[in-house]
Design a binder for these strands. Structure first.
Lengths: 151, 151
DNA sequence: TCTAGTGTAACTATTCTTGTTACACACTAA
DNA sequence: TTAGTGTGTAACAAGAATAGTTACACTAGA
């Protein structure tokens, strides 16, 4: 598992903001739900803000909320907002390296990996935050209210 | 860059085996081209063997070679052979965790991440080792011969 | 002014990945 | 049957990436 849980945390975060409707949520509340530290959440929200998905209000009564409707936010938007770079790494070679294949393979692999990653992004683009919410709601008790139940 | 350079190394390795035609190549030669340690290569070849892409001959004059033509091996075959698991991690929660959303979100995210990863794999399935070779060959001098030039 | 928030730097801890050494075993050729 | 090449793999070391934590300056509302 190479893995990177930022995307999961970011979606979870955005999902909670959606649940919270227009009521701003604090990084502390979200962090408790995700089971991590508020700073981790703030860092991720920073990326979402930078890409216009979320807006933040400072000070008392402040917190974050979505700038758009959940059906207008795709997982690709969130994925790209994280600016994590490429999934597959193509290792650098030493400058002294002299195998001609080694030198030539690198850009070729980069090209094909880029294509593959586009396939991933296309799929992510078809999934909206609303889809996530719908699935999550199915699993929650009907009378669930986040503000009361969160622990 | 979460990244994992195993796929790049595995493709590079398979590519060299293809270049070598039916002449078995040693892990040492491949390691020099990739600029790493022979054990790293052997570990990866072990996965390729397990999935029937490569066969290995022990002892003097031994080494590895492909079991199929390069046009019959896709990057998806190589990717899946590495058994790296999922690209995106969905973090576990503490057992004591009691936020109901937290509990419910996990399987939902796993499902959607699985779909996204399938998009990646579909793309990889469309790229064969032969495609890589063709691109690499374009960049190499016409009279290139691996056995003489490898350093 | 007090309290409740955020943003961010700096540091620590942890985990993942890669690299290395070492050695038993397999096979070939003399 | 012995020497030489090569693999497989365990065990450990080193390095890098990820995540978690603390601390503190700054913003805003009551």
């Amino acid at each position: 598992m190479a893995s990177n849980s930022k995307l999961a945390i970011a979606i979870h975060t955005a999902g909670m903001l959606a649940f919270g409707e227009q009521m701003p949520l604090t990084s502390k509340i979200i962090a408790e739900s995700v089971d991590t530290n508020p700073v981790v959440i703030r860092r991720i929200i920073g990326n979402l803000v930078k890409h216009g998905l979320v807006e933040v209000k400072m000070g008392t009564g402040g917190g974050s909320r979505l700038t758009r409707q959940p059906r207008e936010i795709t997982l690709a938007d969130i994925y790209l907002a994280l600016e994590e770079g490429y999934i597959f790494n193509v290792p650098e070679l030493e400058k002294s390296h002299c195998c001609p294949i080694g030198k030539v393979v690198r850009p070729v692999l980069k090209k094909f990996f880029g294509e593959a990653e586009n396939g991933l992004i296309e799929k992510l683009r078809k999934i909206t935050l609303q889809d996530i919410l719908n699935d999550v709601r199915k699993e929650l008790p009907e009378d669930f209210c986040m503000m009361e139940n969160n622990g």
